[in-house]
Protein backbone atom coordinates (compact mmCIF):
# COMPACT_ATOMS: atom_id res chain seq x y z
CA UNK A 1 0.00 0.00 0.00
CA UNK A 2 2.46 2.65 1.09
CA UNK A 3 5.93 3.34 -0.23
CA UNK A 4 7.26 2.48 3.17
CA UNK A 5 6.41 -1.16 2.68
CA UNK A 6 8.83 -1.15 -0.24
CA UNK A 7 11.74 0.26 1.70
CA UNK A 8 12.88 -2.92 3.45
CA UNK A 9 13.33 -4.83 0.21
CA UNK A 10 15.29 -2.01 -1.39
CA UNK A 11 17.40 -1.49 1.70
CA UNK A 12 18.43 -5.15 1.83
CA UNK A 13 19.81 -4.80 -1.70
CA UNK A 14 21.81 -1.67 -1.00
CA UNK A 15 22.82 -2.07 2.62
CA UNK A 16 26.29 -3.55 2.75
CA UNK A 17 26.43 -4.86 6.31
CA UNK A 18 22.80 -5.90 6.31
CA UNK A 19 22.65 -5.61 10.10
CA UNK A 20 19.90 -2.97 10.24
CA UNK A 21 18.46 -3.50 6.82
CA UNK A 22 16.22 -0.43 6.86
CA UNK A 23 18.48 2.38 8.00
CA UNK A 24 22.06 3.42 8.60
CA UNK A 25 22.05 1.85 12.07
CA UNK A 26 23.33 4.90 13.93
CA UNK A 27 21.60 4.22 17.25
CA UNK A 28 24.04 4.00 20.16
CA UNK A 29 23.81 1.46 22.97
CA UNK A 30 21.69 2.77 25.84
CA UNK A 31 22.56 1.57 29.32
CA UNK A 32 20.02 1.21 32.13
CA UNK A 33 21.75 3.96 34.15
CA UNK A 34 21.13 6.49 31.39
CA UNK A 35 17.35 6.05 31.43
CA UNK A 36 15.50 8.50 33.70
CA UNK A 37 12.63 7.00 35.68
CA UNK A 38 10.03 9.10 33.87
CA UNK A 39 10.96 7.41 30.56
CA UNK A 40 8.86 4.44 31.73
CA UNK A 41 5.62 4.28 33.70
CA UNK A 42 4.36 2.49 36.81
CA UNK A 43 2.24 -0.37 35.47
CA UNK A 44 -1.21 -1.30 36.83
CA UNK A 45 0.24 -4.53 38.29
CA UNK A 46 2.82 -2.52 40.23
CA UNK A 47 5.86 -3.12 38.05
CA UNK A 48 8.08 -0.06 38.14
CA UNK A 49 6.83 1.31 41.46
CA UNK A 50 9.78 2.48 43.60
CA UNK A 51 10.53 2.12 47.30
CA UNK A 52 8.78 4.36 49.78
CA UNK A 53 5.25 4.93 51.02
CA UNK A 54 2.84 7.24 52.77
CA UNK A 55 -0.63 7.62 54.28
CA UNK A 56 -3.53 9.99 53.69
CA UNK A 57 -2.86 11.63 57.05
CA UNK A 58 0.61 12.63 55.89
CA UNK A 59 -0.64 13.46 52.39
CA UNK A 60 -3.23 15.91 53.72
CA UNK A 61 -0.53 18.28 54.93
CA UNK A 62 1.42 18.12 51.67
CA UNK A 63 -1.78 18.62 49.70
CA UNK A 64 -2.58 21.80 51.65
CA UNK A 65 0.78 23.32 50.88
CA UNK A 66 1.44 22.14 47.33
CA UNK A 67 -1.84 21.25 45.63
CA UNK A 68 -4.83 23.05 47.13
CA UNK A 69 -4.21 26.35 45.33
CA UNK A 70 -5.09 24.73 41.99
CA UNK A 71 -7.25 21.73 42.88
CA UNK A 72 -9.25 23.19 45.77
CA UNK A 73 -8.99 23.23 49.56
CA UNK A 74 -10.56 19.79 49.96
CA UNK A 75 -9.98 18.46 46.44
CA UNK A 76 -13.46 19.14 45.11
CA UNK A 77 -13.38 22.91 44.53
CA UNK A 78 -10.96 23.18 41.62
CA UNK A 79 -10.59 25.35 39.61
CA UNK A 80 -8.39 22.68 37.97
CA UNK A 81 -9.79 19.13 37.43
CA UNK A 82 -10.79 18.30 41.02
CA UNK A 83 -9.26 14.90 41.91
CA UNK A 84 -12.12 14.25 44.36
CA UNK A 85 -15.67 13.93 43.08
CA UNK A 86 -17.36 13.66 40.65
CA UNK A 87 -18.99 17.09 40.49
CA UNK A 88 -20.12 19.71 38.00
CA UNK A 89 -16.56 20.95 37.49
CA UNK A 90 -15.14 17.54 36.55
CA UNK A 91 -17.05 14.34 35.90
CA UNK A 92 -13.93 12.13 35.89
CA UNK A 93 -12.12 12.64 39.24
CA UNK A 94 -8.72 10.98 39.28
CA UNK A 95 -9.17 9.30 42.66
CA UNK A 96 -12.43 7.63 41.76
CA UNK A 97 -12.84 7.42 37.98
CA UNK A 98 -9.38 6.21 36.92
CA UNK A 99 -9.19 2.42 36.56
CA UNK A 100 -5.83 1.97 38.35
CA UNK A 101 -4.39 3.62 41.46
CA UNK A 102 -0.83 3.20 40.18
CA UNK A 103 -1.50 6.00 37.68
CA UNK A 104 -2.10 8.45 40.52
CA UNK A 105 1.35 7.87 41.98
CA UNK A 106 3.12 7.99 38.65
CA UNK A 107 1.36 11.08 37.33
CA UNK A 108 1.76 13.07 40.54
CA UNK A 109 5.44 12.18 40.69
CA UNK A 110 6.21 13.13 37.08
CA UNK A 111 3.91 16.10 36.54
CA UNK A 112 2.71 17.75 39.76
CA UNK A 113 2.68 20.43 40.97
CA UNK A 114 2.51 21.73 37.44
CA UNK A 115 4.92 24.61 38.08
CA UNK A 116 7.49 22.36 39.82
CA UNK A 117 7.18 18.91 38.25
CA UNK A 118 9.48 16.14 39.60
CA UNK A 119 10.06 18.09 42.83
CA UNK A 120 8.22 15.58 45.07
CA UNK A 121 9.90 12.68 46.83
CA UNK A 122 8.56 9.17 46.32
CA UNK A 123 7.19 9.22 49.88
CA UNK A 124 5.34 12.47 49.16
CA UNK A 125 3.86 11.14 45.92
CA UNK A 126 2.66 7.95 47.68
CA UNK A 127 1.16 10.02 50.51
CA UNK A 128 -0.65 12.30 48.03
CA UNK A 129 -2.03 9.30 46.13
CA UNK A 130 -3.22 7.91 49.49
CA UNK A 131 -4.83 11.23 50.41
CA UNK A 132 -6.72 11.49 47.10
CA UNK A 133 -7.90 7.85 47.34
CA UNK A 134 -8.96 8.36 50.96
CA UNK A 135 -10.88 11.57 50.13
CA UNK A 136 -12.76 9.59 47.48
CA UNK A 137 -13.67 6.89 50.00
CA UNK A 138 -11.57 4.27 48.21
CA UNK A 139 -9.13 3.51 51.08
CA UNK A 140 -8.94 4.20 54.81
CA UNK A 141 -7.12 7.16 56.34
CA UNK A 142 -4.41 5.05 57.97
CA UNK A 143 -3.73 2.71 55.02
CA UNK A 144 -0.20 3.22 53.77
CA UNK A 145 0.25 3.27 49.99
CA UNK A 146 3.45 1.73 48.66
CA UNK A 147 4.69 -0.55 45.89
CA UNK A 148 2.72 -3.51 47.32
CA UNK A 149 -0.55 -1.88 48.45
CA UNK A 150 -1.13 0.63 45.63
CA UNK A 151 -1.57 -1.95 42.82
CA UNK A 152 -3.87 -3.96 45.12
CA UNK A 153 -6.37 -1.09 45.43
CA UNK A 154 -9.53 -1.97 43.51
CA UNK A 155 -10.71 1.23 41.89
CA UNK A 156 -14.52 1.51 41.91
CA UNK A 157 -14.86 2.37 38.21
CA UNK A 158 -12.43 -0.24 36.88
CA UNK A 159 -14.96 -2.54 35.24
CA UNK A 160 -16.89 0.26 33.57
CA UNK A 161 -14.54 0.76 30.63
CA UNK A 162 -14.83 -0.65 27.12
CA UNK A 163 -11.43 -0.99 25.44
CA UNK A 164 -12.23 0.31 21.97
CA UNK A 165 -8.83 -0.58 20.50
CA UNK A 166 -9.32 -4.22 21.54
CA UNK A 167 -12.87 -4.20 20.25
CA UNK A 168 -12.54 -2.48 16.88
CA UNK A 169 -9.00 -1.23 16.43
CA UNK A 170 -8.57 2.26 15.04
CA UNK A 171 -12.14 2.48 13.71
CA UNK A 172 -13.58 5.57 15.41
CA UNK A 173 -16.06 4.75 18.21
Amino acid sequence: MSMRKLIPAAAVLFCANGAWAEGPGLGQALSAEEIPWYASYAMPDGRGLPEGGGTAAVGAGIYDGKCAACHGATGVEGPVTPPVGPNDIWAKPAGRYWPYATTLFDYIRRAMPIDAPKSLTNDEAYALAAFILYRNGVIGEAEAMNAQTLPAVVMPNRDNFTDVWAKQGATPW
Binding site: A42, M43, K92, A94, T103, D106, N160, F161, T162, V164
Partner: peptide, 23 residues
Protein backbone atom coordinates in the same frame (compact mmCIF):
# COMPACT_ATOMS: atom_id res chain seq x y z
CA UNK B 1 0.46 1.62 31.12
CA UNK B 2 -2.88 3.38 31.67
CA UNK B 3 -1.17 6.73 31.81
CA UNK B 4 -3.02 9.74 33.18
CA UNK B 5 -4.35 10.86 29.81
CA UNK B 6 -5.65 7.41 28.82
CA UNK B 7 -7.21 6.91 32.28
CA UNK B 8 -9.33 10.03 32.56
CA UNK B 9 -8.87 13.06 30.39
CA UNK B 10 -9.00 11.20 27.05
CA UNK B 11 -11.68 8.64 27.87
CA UNK B 12 -15.33 9.31 27.10
CA UNK B 13 -18.29 8.91 29.44
CA UNK B 14 -21.24 7.34 27.64
CA UNK B 15 -24.95 7.91 28.13
CA UNK B 16 -25.25 4.62 30.05
CA UNK B 17 -22.68 5.65 32.67
CA UNK B 18 -19.90 3.40 31.35
CA UNK B 19 -16.88 4.77 29.54
CA UNK B 20 -14.84 4.05 26.45
CA UNK B 21 -11.03 4.03 26.62
CA UNK B 22 -8.33 3.76 23.92
CA UNK B 23 -10.58 5.59 21.43
Amino acid sequence: AHTKDESGEYTELLADGTSVEFT
